[in-house]
Design a protein around this nucleic acid. Sequence first.
DNA 1: GCCCATCTCCCGGTCAGTGGAAACGACTCT
DNA 2: AGAGTCGTTTCCACTGACCGGGAGATGGGC
Lengths: 246, 246
Amino acid sequence: MPVPKSLLGRAFTLLGVFSEQRPSATLSELSRLSGLPLSTTHRLVRELLQWRALDRDARGRYSIGLRLWELGALSPGSLDLRERALPFLEDLVEVTRHNAQLAIRDGLDAVFVERLSARDAVSVVSRAGSRLPLHATGVGLVLLAHAPAQVQELALASPLRRFTSRTICAPARLREALAQVRRDGYAISDRQIEMITYSVAAPVRDAGGEVVAAVSVVLPTGARTDAAVSAVRTCGRAISRALGAP
Amino acid sequence: MPVPKSLLGRAFTLLGVFSEQRPSATLSELSRLSGLPLSTTHRLVRELLQWRALDRDARGRYSIGLRLWELGALSPGSLDLRERALPFLEDLVEVTRHNAQLAIRDGLDAVFVERLSARDAVSVVSRAGSRLPLHATGVGLVLLAHAPAQVQELALASPLRRFTSRTICAPARLREALAQVRRDGYAISDRQIEMITYSVAAPVRDAGGEVVAAVSVVLPTGARTDAAVSAVRTCGRAISRALGAP
DNA sequence: GCCCATCTCCCGGTCAGTGGAAACGACTCT
DNA sequence: AGAGTCGTTTCCACTGACCGGGAGATGGGC
């Protein structure tokens, strides 16, 4: 992958070195992983430090700085959706005793904008900021089912990544699942990401009635889902109302 | 304020136009508010769109893009502190029935990295991403009391902003309050930001024993604080342990 | 249809950014 | 104490990415 010529491109390539698996890096690692020459990397890092987009710890490791977090907190997904949804997610956790998640669609991914945990609940792999493919998650099935037809066709035409032996990988199976989600008004994701979890997801709509997010709880495999379905759908409607949905 | 000469400086100045009060803006607004010429603004905005750092809606208004939120979610304050603290904050809300907050210090500000709300609790002005001066908040008093002496002296030497008639504005009063926080191991903030709220805050320590955050609940003015003090201190210790504190 | 505001695009000029090389600092080993 | 290694920092001649005024395009309101 060639290094971008533009300065902004280089800065974002540098920032892109950080991930959940690598939340910090040395200067040399940043240079090596971004493909930028060492002195170029040094200059960019110095300026990103000045703008608080990066921080440096006592041992010379760099990590994402507070300023990027603050800027990110101004995104509509955070400032509007997530802040309004939080009280309802807390209700959902309290009522169902399971972990709750809120996700939006970005391309063919579900991006988790919040995850609240319940005491003693089955653990989940996502955290705020995680991405998972749409087809393999409850929230993703809801988001895809209500996405523009073009997005659905693109998803059906793309390789569908397998996570467990039960992950939906056949386009025909996915198409059928999406139709069922639209009929039912919710999705149940059965052992798609891990063999130990179900998830139950429902849509969240905005003032225009568009599905802009999905909310879910994650249950242990084999748990009864009917009460969870009711709770999640109710939560989805409450969040929708908070967003101004009719 | 002159426009920075560096491209990164200009980009951050542009992004700095966005705030909680102004989460979106048109191209012309971005140019006017940042001080950048229109065509310069247009070029920068176009590239920030490409990198998903900005988004544009159907009516031509720009807002912070998902990529900045994702990058920000990788900051230590979010990925390490906030993700680990969330379950304990949820516990605190459930037990005390009050809104809970988690904040870190940045200069002379308390930056709220999380705020969970309780049903029917007194509302609070902060949200994730908000800043308030240290001296005027419970979390801020805790963070300042345990900050390096140089930071404390700087705060004492700086103008102390008044929010209510009870806000601490005299350096001597603040010094005394900080000493008491260190003695007690917690802070009670009495009608400092609004006349209708107290807050009770306790420290959160890292593996090295340093105070890296503070947790609080917000009570209506006049409410008994003793039970809240116990709950908040217990929560602070639990989060500390999750961060590897001894 | 006209006016106005906003947005988009062009392109000659220039200075902010480039990156290899040298110097510096910290650490380890003998 | 000295040598070697590794990572970081600094320098500076060169250059092309960026600059931004101005012309044109677009869309909304009257």
